[in-house]
């Protein structure tokens, strides 16, 4: 396996521009959790011209709904959820400054175009490796929408969170290139 790149949040244009598909990264810093329900609420806020529960500039959103933390633990298991459901929301979030998303599965062309336009990046974490991923999460603070349970927005502090660049700001898409490489006609 190739050397893993260490990156820190918040992300800058320089960091994002240096990432290309297939790069394995270890992320350190803060990331925010949100999935379907929280995204819907945030985009509704943007539509009304209101402020989001956190300042998105340079930040990353992790598409995750963790399982409850056992006593003495920071978080329960916390692997990514499927990202295409956020195709409708992520372009809006990138427009207001979001620099990256972490999820699983391919995102749509509307997201790919926005990554290119605004220099942002989409990472995948290994779906179903939730107990392993939780080990890289060292802090967990509720930010908004507690009533959504697992779908609430949380600020996670992560150290060496393992992810792979899946769609980059140069138009690269690992789902297209990776699959073509291994397909046997």
């Amino acid at each position: 396996m190739s050397e893993k790149k260490k990156i820190n949040t918040p992300l800058t244009d320089d960091i994002v521009a240096g990432l290309k598909i297939g790069d394995e990264v270890l992320i350190t810093g803060n990331i925010y959790t949100a999935r379907d329900a929280a995204h819907k609420r945030m985009v509704d806020l943007l539509d009304k011209g209101e402020k989001l529960p956190f300042e998105p500039k340079g930040q990353m959103i992790y598409f995750v709904g963790p399982s409850p933390a056992k006593p003495g633990k920071v978080i329960g298991s916390a692997g990514p959820t499927t990202s295409y459901r956020m195709n409708a929301y992520s372009p809006r979030m990138i427009e207001v400054g979001l620099k990256g998303m972490i999820g699983k599965g391919e995102m749509g062309p509307e997201v790919a175009a926005k990554l290119k336009e605004k220099t942002a990046v989409y990472f995948v974490a290994v779906g179903g490796a939730a107990a392993l991923i939780a080990k890289s999460i060292t802090g967990n603070e509720l930010i908004a929408y507690e009533e959504l349970g697992a779908e609430a927005i949380r600020k996670l502090t992560v150290k060496d969170f393992p992810a792979i660049v899946a769609m980059d700001c140069h138009g690269g898409n690992i789902y297209k290139e990776g699959i073509a490489k291994y397909e046997k006609k």
């Binding site: 329960g76 298991s77 179903g128 939730a130 107990a131």
Partner: peptide
């Protein structure tokens, strides 16, 4: 590498009695 992570994850889940997947 991904399959390695999946196997390691299964081990952690069993040893720590933690859900292998958050879903």
């Amino acid at each position: 590498g991904i399959l390695d992570q999946v196997l390691e994850n299964a081990k952690i889940a069993r040893n720590e009695q933690a859900p292998m997947c958050q879903d």
